[in-house]
Computed example of a mutant assay.
Amino acid sequence: MKEKRKKLKPGESLVLWISRLVIWCVILLTVIPMLFVVTASFNSSNTYFSASLIPSHPSFVNYTKLFQDGQFLVWVKNSLIVGLSVAIGQVFFTATSAFAFSRLRFFGRKYGLMTLLILQMFPNFLAIAAIYGVLASTE
């Protein structure tokens, strides 16, 4: 059975195309820096920026240096250990605290929930200045 297409209202088509344009701009803004990183990895000189997007003399020198030392797999293993342990710990603590806030009645529950909501309203990016201040003062 053939499905009928839904007719768009007069303003919906414009909103649809504008949203598509915004989505494509966001995609480009995320892909272009990755393209620069890949281009810099194939550049044989130690420069991050070049005049062209495709290097004139691409080489695998940086990749051979990366795998020659034998430390790359150690770095991957350490990253996996840290990432998995943080993820498991975070799931455990958030699950137990979510259970406590949803099912149990205790003193400070209301203010605890309000504090969590206020903290979620601010992005982690705002904490960078504070983290830098702490790290700079430990010298």
Rank of each mutant, 00 (worst) to 15 (best):
F106P: 04
A87W: 02
V61H: 04
L35Y: 03
M34P: 00
L35T: 01
P58M: 01
L35G: 03
N78I: 08
P58Y: 00
R103P: 05
R105N: 13
Q68S: 12
L113P: 12
S50F: 02
T64F: 10
M121F: 11
S97L: 09
L126K: 03
G89I: 11
F101L: 08
S97H: 05
V74Y: 08
L66I: 04
S56C: 11
N62R: 09
F101G: 04
K65C: 15
L119P: 01
S52N: 15
S45T: 15
Q120H: 14
T94L: 10
F93S: 07
A51L: 15
G83I: 00
Q68W: 14
R109W: 06
G108P: 00
V38W: 00
V74D: 08
R109N: 03
F106D: 07
V61D: 03
D69S: 15
I32K: 01
L66H: 06
F101Q: 00
V31P: 02
Q120N: 11
P33L: 01
Q71M: 13
V61A: 09
R103C: 13
F107N: 02
S44G: 15
L116F: 01
V76P: 10
F93R: 12
D69W: 13
F36A: 00
Q120T: 04
S45I: 13
S52T: 12
L84P: 03
F106R: 11
A51Q: 13
S50E: 03
I81R: 02
L116D: 01
V38T: 03
A87I: 10
M114A: 14
Y48R: 09
H57A: 10
S59E: 06
S59N: 14
T47N: 09
K77G: 13
R103F: 15
G83M: 02
V76T: 06
A95D: 03
S44N: 12
I54T: 06
A98W: 07
W75L: 08
M114P: 11
I81K: 02
L80T: 04
Q71K: 14
A87M: 08
V31I: 04
G108N: 02
P123Y: 07
S56W: 08
L35Q: 01
S45H: 11
F107L: 06
